[in-house]
Design a protein around this nucleic acid. Sequence first.
RNA 1: CGGGGCGUAGCGCAGACUGGUCAGCGCACCUGCCUUGGGAGCAGGGGGUCGGCGGUUCAAAUCCGCCCGUCCCGACCA
Length: 585
Amino acid sequence: MRYSRSFIHTQYEVPKEAETPSHILLLRGSYIYPAAAGIYSLLPLGHRVAEKVKKIIREEMDGIDGLEVTMPVLNPAELWKATKRYFDIGQELFRIRDRRQREFVLAMTHEEIVTDIAKKFLRSYRDLPVMLYQIQTKIRDEARPRAGLLRVREFQMKDAYSFHPDFDDLDRYYPRIYNAYLRIFARCGLNAVPIEADTGIMGGTGSHEFMLESAYGEDQFVVCTQCDYRANTEKAVGIKPPVDDLPEDPPIMEKVSTPGVKTIAQLMDFFHTAEDHFLKTVAYEADGRLVLGVVRGDFAISPTKLTNHLKAVRLEMASEELLERHGLHGGFLSPVGLSDKSVRVVVDTSVGDRTLYVAGGNAVDVHVKNVLPGRDFQIQDRADIAEVRPGDPCAVCGRGRLEIRRGIELGHTFKLGTKYTAPDTMDVTYLGTDGDNHRVVMGCYGIGVERLMASAVEQWHDDAGIIWPVTIAPFQVILTTLGKSPEVDAAAEALYEDLRTRWEVLYDDRDESPGVKLKDADLLGIPLRVVVSQRGLKQQTYEVKVRKTGEVSFHGRAELVRALERMVADLVPSLDGLPLLPETA
RNA sequence: CGGGGCGUAGCGCAGACUGGUCAGCGCACCUGCCUUGGGAGCAGGGGGUCGGCGGUUCAAAUCCGCCCGUCCCGACCA
């Protein structure tokens, strides 16, 4: 491709809307162009990168027996009503009507469509297992798109769905997709870290997120400093150091007037007592019911953990009206002396029975002190509903400490089970060898293509520009001429014709000053740069610079191709040392 | 959806507080000359509903109101 014909329009200035490195560099390199907030065109360069990524994804998906399909973006609302997602998902789901007022949604994923297909065609155990996948546009009305391609409203996603005769079969398949994901990210040059993810109401250990650690990521995950435990903060479990200072002869519980004292900070001041001697009680509305969550004062409640424990669909902070209706008062909530039996109370495992707590009094301006769990109130529902804290001991190895890191979620694998095939959703069964109907078990697996591209830039850039991994670079080689002379042009033309039979070559044939051409080559991030110049021709050499290392070498015409071949091979990311799961036959 | 910033040429910005003398600068773009190893130089040139609507005023880029767009923080995120 000749640069002069390539629709590359680099810009020197940093666009003011961009702050994140990938956003800045992709705009400056004319890889992408915004149409609206969180909606981008992929310009020729960006399109080439996306196609490279998609090719790698296809190879890996095909390698684990995936069958590519294309499903519609426009989905009839009835299917989404059947799975109840039409009602459970908030404003993020685009809902539209056609000219006859029939309701449609713009698909944000394709569980409904693919399950409907499965229901139609999967009749017998002979049809299973099967994995269908597509790479296709997803549309979501994101509340806040951000950071260029990292969080957008329209994007291409590889979404895959596997169908199995039973859970065992899904468990056998799962490592194959997990390993394929590790290979995809590694082949794209990304250091993806698999972490255990929240599985929602499914439970179990059937979900992983693949994270790229990055300061610009919007997700947090927990890592152990000693062992290889890695988990989403919504799921992570740490050891909660117990407080054990119960006096021999515990004093009885006592009411204390605490006018206007509501927060833990105010209470610590009022009672001159440490944070971990309070019971923090927070009121939620879970699918319409009032629920009180209780944690020790030095912990915070994890809404996700509480939601999962309750097996609730929606969890929100309780409104004042709901509290009033139960005769409760925000700021003085408590599991102690709760008369209304319709209120569910969940107590976190941080609350022990070897210490005396200060708790709310369930009356305005009243707290109680010397509260002893088990004596002054009964714990009927005890669960881990607290967020882990940085520095907490690891629950897996017991030796390490937990740290919280930021990351970009590159992909997600999920054992869905029968969430979409159960009788109350889409009801998908097949006929087994025993002649009986059995329920189909599913898994789903997603990768965002543009987010992966942007993540590659986040991981691979310097002050001068992008440094594409050779596997996804728009071109492997940029051929640059310096100086204007017939000899240089002739040599470059001949070299271009030769190199382009082996690689994708961007031939910078522009009549620009050396500075402009060299700066553009760096900004665009093409892995190898070959320079043809008067100076080089005089010595009968061509200069090659490796973008990633900055290493410069000179080669005669005869050995240039061989040298480039070696350098390209060296740049291909290694698949050694990936934390692959064992696959069973 | 809450809080904040920004909106003047393709890009980046000044002008605004103190209304007039204000349609400006750099880069990019076009023409010519010249130059060619890290975003050259000279000369000439094109390009603007100052985000939109309304108000105040003799007069609005500038003051006031509403709206829109965009970015950041937070909430949300199948």
